[in-house]
Amino acid sequence: MPSRIAEPRPDATAALATYGSGRRSAALGLLAASHPLPAAAVTLFAAALTAAVGRGLPGAAATVGAVAAGQLSVGWCNDRADLRRDLAAGRRNKPLAAGAVRPRTVTCAAGLALLLCVPLSLAAGLAAGAAHLVAVAAAWAYNLRLKRTAASWLPYALAFGLLPAFVTLGLPGAPWPPPWLTAGAALLGTAAHFANVLPDIEDDLATGVTGLPQRLGARRSASVAALLAVGSTAALVVGPPGPVTAYGWALLAITAATAVLVVRSPAGPLPFLAVMGLAGADVALLVVQLRG
Score class of each variant (00 low, 15 high):
Ser3Trp: 08
Arg4Cys: 09
Arg4Trp: 12
Arg4Ser: 11
Pro8Leu: 15
Thr13Met: 14
Ala14Phe: 02
Ala15His: 14
Arg24Lys: 11
Ser25Tyr: 07
Ala32Lys: 10
Ala47Trp: 09
Ala52Cys: 08
Val53Phe: 07
Leu57Ile: 13
Leu57Cys: 08
Pro58Leu: 08
Gln71Cys: 10
Leu72Ile: 14
Ser73Val: 06
Trp76Ser: 02
Cys77Arg: 14
Ala81Lys: 00
Leu83Ile: 07
Leu83Gln: 07
Ala88Trp: 09
Arg92Trp: 11
Arg92Ser: 14
Leu96Thr: 01
Ala100Asp: 14
Arg104Ala: 14
Arg104Leu: 15
Ala110Thr: 03
Leu116Asn: 11
Val118Lys: 00
Leu120Ile: 04
Ser121Leu: 12
Ala123Arg: 00
Ala124Ser: 15
Gly125Asn: 07
Ala127Arg: 15
Leu133Ser: 00
Leu133Ala: 04
Ala135Gln: 04
Val136Phe: 03
Trp140Cys: 08
Trp140His: 15
Ala141Asp: 03
Leu144Tyr: 13
Leu146Val: 13
Arg148Ile: 02
Ala150Met: 13
Ala157Cys: 12
Ala159Cys: 09
Gly161Trp: 07
Leu163Val: 10
Phe166Ser: 02
Thr168Ala: 06
Gly170Asp: 10
Gly170Met: 09
Gly170Arg: 04
Leu171Ile: 08
Gly173Ile: 04
Ala174Tyr: 04
Pro177Glu: 09
Pro177Asn: 04
Leu187Asp: 00
Leu188Ile: 00
His193Phe: 05
Ile201Ser: 06
Ile201Glu: 09
Ala206Gly: 11
Thr207Trp: 02
Val209Tyr: 01
Arg215Met: 00
Leu216Glu: 03
Ala218Glu: 06
Ala218Tyr: 01
Arg219Asn: 04
Ser221Asn: 09
Ser221Arg: 14
Ala222Val: 03
Ala225Pro: 03
Leu227Pro: 04
Leu228Arg: 01
Pro240Trp: 10
Pro241Ile: 12
Pro243Ile: 06
Ala246His: 13
Leu251Thr: 09
Ala253His: 13
Leu261Glu: 07
Gly268Glu: 11
Leu270His: 05
Leu273Thr: 14
Leu273Met: 10
Ala274Arg: 03
Ala274Ser: 06
Met276Asn: 10
Gly280His: 07
Asp282Tyr: 05
Leu286Ile: 01
Val288Trp: 13
Val288Ile: 14
